[in-house]
Nucleic acid binder design. Structure first.
Length: 428
RNA sequence: GGAGGGAUGGCAGAGCGGACGAUUGCGACGGUCUUGAAAACCGUUGAGGGGCAACCCUCCGGGGGUUCGAAUCCCCCUCCCUCCGCCA
């Protein structure tokens, strides 16, 4: 959520920044007005409160000194003020809630260096690595859903029978490959990122902190009976790890990683890109996340996550490109996002396998995570950064398609072999 | 699921209707002393909001109530702990 003081002091700047997203900015004018009213009523209420406090004190003194009559008179005076105060207090509460509700629905301001744009087409490809369209043979032009069936390593037909459309099931070497990918990624990031195994069901508050609620409730699975949400990404519990806390600047940046299932209803995208592993309701992901002291450190952390994710793709022998999301394609909470897209030759698609974002203090303000500056100043809201390392189904797909040999078997990239008992081939 | 006990500042832990934003200890920070450090001693040290400022208001898990006045009394909720039951 944005800082209300920023909206108050520089509404034009906020409107201009939101306009870069193509966002309707009328909520800002509304907020400025609401906030003004709220502050006026609040100070009026506070004055009355101060009066009640002062008079009450006198009541006590009068009683102690035995001045009964005076005490009774003061009591009546205080009671009258108290009643007016109560009415104003209700009004303040209502305005507070309105301000917060409005604030929660306003997206983050894009970073100054995020490219402007009106849609996906305006995203900027920063670099393409290892891609040569001429280099792929016919044997690599087989989509993973066919390879999966052919080798018996993917069984979405039965997954569908068990859970419905857009669920998947890995089998045998396919399941092992998936686990190897997860483990590789955890192992190589363990030097700097603390491994966490968080809960995958979370409270409403937790979903609000990352910005997944209140606006995007249709995208998430909700367990009505217990009022819990299935996480769409480990970003949700990891971001809230430090909720409500004041950290020491010397401990920052703090870095965490988690391997979890992720659950997405994919409302509105039914039937789109649903073949094979392109899009499913449940998938595995390893997430890297950092708490940073301010913008400079935050941006450095974003670079670190990106570099780490890229190196995994490189080591897996996959072609990929880095895409700088334009302002209109940016997620609600993000200020700057780089997507990593791996090339899958079989389905001839660039698959988004990672999304590395800097959220400035937007999420941390919602989660109320702060740090105490080393110079002793007042607590500051931290910055958050996160990125996938990686989203595994799509990586699995790109890998299987890329490394398919003419005989239909799959070459296991060297880095994965230790995790597969030294095995060099799948499907032999 | 049943019974009981809790939730107070960075942490520990008092307070149980008015002088309490809160005793105290630890920690942290500043100073004295010291070649330096430690120890000792002195001092400072919660968060949020409003105001140019003096200063004012709010916050003792959350919400409601009683009262002129609530950290303190009452009700509801959440969470934690102990015991019992059940269960992976």
């Amino acid at each position: 959520m944005l800082d209300i003081r920023l909206i108050r002091n520089e509404p034009e700047a906020v409107v201009a920044a939101l306009a870069r997203r193509g966002e309707d900015t009328s909520a800002i004018d509304e907020l400025v007005e609401l906030d003004g009213r709220r502050r006026a009523v609040t100070s009026e209420r506070d004055e009355l409160r101060a009066e009640v406090n002062a008079v009450s004190k006198q009541v006590g003194e009068a009683f102690r000194d035995g001045r009964r009559e005076e005490a009774e008179a003061l009591k009546a005076k205080s009671k009258a003020a108290g009643e007016r105060e109560k009415a104003l207090d209700a009004e303040v509460a209502e305005l507070d809630e309105k301000v917060r509700d409005t604030l929660l629905r306003i997206p983050n301001l894009p970073s100054a260096d995020a490219p402007d744009g009106a849609g996906e087409a305006d995203n900027v490809v920063l670099r393409t690595v290892g891609y040569d369209p001429e280099a792929y043979g016919e044997h690599q032009r087989v989509p993973h859903w066919d390879i999966g069936v052919e080798l018996g390593i993917l069984d979405n037909e039965r997954a569908t029978r068990i859970s419905g459309a857009m669920f998947s099931m890995y089998r045998g070497a396919g399941a092992r490959l998936l686990r190897a990918l997860v483990q590789l990624s955890l192992d190589r990031n363990g030097d700097a990122y603390e491994e966490i195994r968080p809960p995958t069901l979370v409270r409403t508050d937790t979903m609000i902190s990352t910005g997944h609620l209140p606006k995007f409730s249709d995208d998430a699975y909700h367990m009505e009976r217990d009022d819990l949400w299935a996480i769409p990404t480990a970003e949700v519990p990891l971001t809230s790890l430090g909720a409500g806390e004041i950290l020491d600047e010397s401990d920052l940046p703090m870095r965490f990683m988690a391997y979890t299932s992720c659950f997405r209803r994919e409302a509105g995208s039914a039937g789109r890109d649903t073949r094979g592993l392109l899009r499913s309701h449940e998938f595995d992901k390893v997430e890297l996340l950092a708490y940073a002291a301010g913008e400079e450190q935050g941006k450095a952390c974003q670079e670190d996550v990106l570099a780490r994710s890229e190196s995994i793709l490189t080591d897996l022998g996959l072609a990929y490109r880095v895409v700088d999301l334009c302002t209109s394609d940016l997620g609600n909470s993000a200020a700057r996002t780089w997507d990593l897209e791996a090339y899958a030759p079989g389905c001839d698609l660039w698959l988004e396998v990672s999304s590395v974002s800097w959220f400035s203090d937007y999420q941390a303000r919602r989660a109320n995570i702060r740090y105490r500056p080393a110079d002793g100043g007042p607590p500051q809201v931290i910055h958050t950064v996160n990125g996938s390392a990686m989203g595994w189904p799509r990586t699995w797909a790109a890998l299987v398609e890329t490394h398919r040999r003419p005989d239909g078997t799959i070459t296991v990239p060297e880095v994965l072999r230790p995790y597969l008992g030294g095995g060099e081939t799948i499907g032999a």
